[in-house]
């Protein structure tokens, strides 16, 4: 029975991940894109590449704890200095009365970074098994986290702006804390991991099942 779907790999073609050109007659020796010269994707590299993504994800997860526990910035006000954490900032926004912004920051800086890592872990797990039932879910969620990725950087920018603006010596000064760097590491590592994950890993297993 012929396969229901024809993929580029079955035909010996490869679409370049970088420039999008379709290359034909791709072999072990001819594995560079004819247009831009980038290395073309190969099925044999999937296992190795997946391990790289797992490693990046674990690194991101390791930074999640210092990001939440260490102060993201220290506000010095008339001699008093108050270190504040991520959750503390959200509570402050609620107290001030900016309910909308507080919710945005809570979701964007505490819940979403964690959810992104959990989802990427789930997608990686699905790509390693042959559970076809989860495939559509994984595809959809992967798109969500790829889109969301960069928006978590908003906290890093807020701290950077506040630290640069609020420099009034004795009266008021804001210094960034170690938590901000750890948080940036979480966001950047998750972004790099999501970028390195190739959605076709979710399909290749079943493409070569003969189903």
């Amino acid at each position: 029975m012929p396969p229901r779907f024809v993929t580029a790999t079955m035909l010996g073609w490869a679409r370049c991940d970088h420039c999008g050109a379709i290359n034909r007659r791709v072999t072990r020796d001819r594995c560079r894109c004819a247009v831009c010269g980038a290395t073309l994707p190969r099925v044999e590299e999937t296992a190795q590449e997946r391990r790289v993504v797992w490693a990046l994800l674990l690194a991101a997860f390791a930074f999640y704890f210092p990001a939440n526990l260490l102060p993201v910035m220290t506000v010095a006000n008339l001699g008093r200095s108050e270190p504040s954490t991520l959750i503390g900032g959200v509570i402050h926004l609620y107290v001030v009365g900016s309910w909308g912004l507080a919710t945005i920051v809570l979701v964007a800086s505490v819940l979403i970074p964690f959810a992104k890592m959990v989802v990427l872990g789930f997608v990686l797990w699905v790509s390693g098994t042959r559970r076809r039932r989860w495939q559509p879910v994984a595809v959809r969620w992967l798109r969500w986290i790829a889109w969301l990725g960069r928006w978590s950087m908003v906290d890093v920018f807020v701290v950077a702006l506040l630290a640069a603006w609020v420099q009034f010596g004795e009266i008021a000064a804001i210094t960034p804390g170690a938590g901000t760097l750890a948080f940036a590491a979480v966001v950047v590592l998750t972004m790099v991991a999501t970028e390195r994950f190739r959605p076709r890993w979710l399909w290749w297993e079943s493409d070569f099942d003969g189903t």
């Binding site: 945005i104 960069r150 950087m153 908003v154 920018f157 950077a160």
Partner: peptide
């Protein structure tokens, strides 16, 4: 994302 950061920073200040 940076623009959203500016808005949040302005509200905080």
């Amino acid at each position: 994302v940076f623009l959203l950061g500016v808005v949040v920073a302005v509200v905080k200040l």
